[in-house]
Amino acid sequence: AEDTGVRVELAEEDDGRKSSIALRLWVEDAKKLKGKSKDNGAIEFTFELEKETPDDVAQEMVDAGFFHESDVKIIAKSIRDRVALIQWRRERICPMLH
């Protein structure tokens, strides 16, 4: 995945079955963001794989004051890349479940 300066990782082990997964997001390189972000630390949240889109969550993070509006796309992309990887892994490792 492209280096967006924003890191998103699983916050719990993925058993391949749950529809919602816990993710953790933090800024690795603040210079890649357009707006100034607060020194947030790591933001942990749950993501509904079937129901939600990374854009929705990114917008909520902006609304909650974690990031500037101008960075909503880079946040969404970072989440999207990680979610795509998780879904790819699930389909590859547990094809019977899909």
Binding site: G41, A42, I43, T46, D63, A64
Partner: peptide, 27 residues
């Protein structure tokens, strides 16, 4: 721990905690 902060927004719960030093990229 005491550094953990919980932020609610649009029905979602964000849990904010410090990033462990080992996870930060070296500048």
């Amino acid at each position: 721990n005491s550094f953990t902060q919980v932020v609610h927004s649009a029905g979602r719960r964000f849990i904010v905690s410090p990033v462990p030093e080992s996870r930060l990229r070296e500048q």
